[in-house]
Computed example of a mutant assay.
Amino acid sequence: MVIDECRAAHRIHTKNGRVIGVETDRGRIDAPIVINAAGPWAANLAATCDANLPIFASRQSVAICRLKSPIEDERLPGYSERGSGFYLRPDTPSVYMVGSLAPDDSEPIDPDAFRPRMDGATSRRYCERAAQRFRRLSDASPGGSRVSFFDDTPDGNPIVGVDPRVDGLIVAAGLSGHGFKFAPVFGQEIAAIIDAGRMDGDLDQFKVSRFLD
């Protein structure tokens, strides 16, 4: 088996309704099976073979909050509260990562023209949101940020399985920020499709056709 890294896929080639290969930035690769696992770029790649997918990239930011008076032996656990619109996890001692669950903080973006920056006012707002639940964070100061993007779907769940519109095309994208938790199962089931032509487990809730019915 050959793993060819750092090669961009630009087009899925088909003939008579079946996959025959992929066009890359370094030439064509012929293949009877193609797995579209291009994340935020999966929709663009799928469109090249008329198998459109409802996947879009969304901005995701995490503020780093640093306590001025750390309490080493009482670290907060990982925590999520949708009603208050935030999640939190401990990082290094006295440092917490705070992200947003508020829809207004997660706008669609172009992953090819994305600026991974979070301004200080937004970072402070995230920290203050968490401080309303955890008093010890009230004296925290912004200590940086992490900014990236998700590949989202309309229902917030991944798209995994055979695409019924094109023979030989398998989708594993639209992970919506939590697909990594299912990654071992997704990999196992995709291998089962390639090896035996069917999944061993029940992943109907993730099937492509739920957006085609």
Rank of each mutant, 00 (worst) to 15 (best):
T14L: 05
F56T: 12
S138Y: 05
S58N: 12
K207N: 13
Y126G: 00
V2L: 14
M97Q: 11
Y87F: 15
G187T: 07
L101N: 10
P158E: 03
T14S: 10
V98M: 03
H13I: 12
M118C: 13
G177W: 01
F56L: 07
I190L: 05
S69R: 14
M1N: 09
G27C: 11
E23T: 13
G168V: 12
Y87I: 08
A102C: 13
R28V: 15
P108D: 09
G156A: 09
R75H: 08
F134Y: 09
S145R: 00
H13L: 14
H10Y: 09
D200Q: 08
A51L: 09
L175H: 01
Y87C: 09
A38V: 02
Y87S: 08
Y126N: 03
G39R: 06
E23M: 08
R66M: 08
G197R: 11
E81K: 11
Q60A: 08
I193D: 03
V98N: 01
F206M: 04
I55E: 00
N36F: 00
L45E: 02
A140C: 12
L175G: 01
G17H: 11
G99N: 04
P54A: 11
E23F: 03
A172K: 00
V166N: 02
L53Y: 03
R117S: 08
L203D: 02
R210D: 11
R124W: 06
E81Y: 12
G156Y: 06
L76F: 09
L169E: 04
A47I: 03
C127W: 02
R125M: 12
A121E: 15
V22S: 00
L67W: 02
L203G: 01
N52Y: 11
S123F: 04
Y96K: 06
A140K: 01
V95K: 08
I29H: 07
I3A: 11
I193F: 07
W41R: 07
G201S: 12
E72F: 15
V185R: 00
R115N: 14
L175T: 02
P103C: 13
Y79W: 15
A46H: 04
P54G: 09
A131C: 09
A121R: 10
V147A: 01
D204L: 07
G99T: 06
S100W: 02
F206V: 00
A46V: 03
Q205A: 15
R66W: 02
P40T: 10
A51K: 02
G78V: 14
G143P: 03
Q188Y: 12
Y126Q: 05
L88R: 01
G174Y: 00
F114A: 05
P70D: 10
F56Y: 13
R89A: 10
D167S: 14
T48Q: 05
G85D: 10
R7S: 10
D30W: 09
C6W: 09
R135K: 14
S209P: 00
A63L: 05
K68F: 01
C65P: 01
I190Q: 00
P108R: 09
P111R: 11
